[in-house]
């Protein structure tokens, strides 16, 4: 596909459909707050670095990062879903 002109691409990003969270990330917001903003003691994901979140998720999956619950969660998602979720949360305002 031909790359979209910059203006059109940014307009599309601004539409709600394009800004929409992938369905996999919908499971996360029940603890991490609206759009991953964080809630009480549960850390925020909004506006965080995409690569850092992916690395943390991989560490949770491998039991290499201490967690009360994220290991059990992270092992349920595919790599593609983790990347899509991290990209979505990275784009949210902090």
């Amino acid at each position: 596909m031909r790359p979209l002109p910059l203006l059109l691409a940014s307009l599309m990003l601004a539409t709600p459909a394009a800004a929409q969270a992938p369905l996999a990330a919908q499971g996360c917001v029940g603890c991490h707050g609206p759009n991953g903003a964080g809630m009480g003691s549960v850390p925020g994901l909004a506006g965080r670095d995409r690569a850092e979140m992916i690395a943390q998720m991989n560490a949770f999956r491998a039991n290499e990062r201490p967690a009360t619950i994220m290991g059990r969660i992270a092992r349920g998602y595919t790599e593609a879903e983790i990347i899509a979720s991290a990209e979505y949360f990275a784009r949210q305002p902090r």
Partner: peptide, 19 residues
């Protein structure tokens, strides 16, 4: 773990009811 899960449970309740 038990102490943290009690705290995280409260955060879950706030998050899901906001959702």
């Amino acid at each position: 773990q038990r102490r943290l899960e009690a705290l995280y449970a409260d955060a879950w309740y706030e998050s899901i009811t906001k959702d």
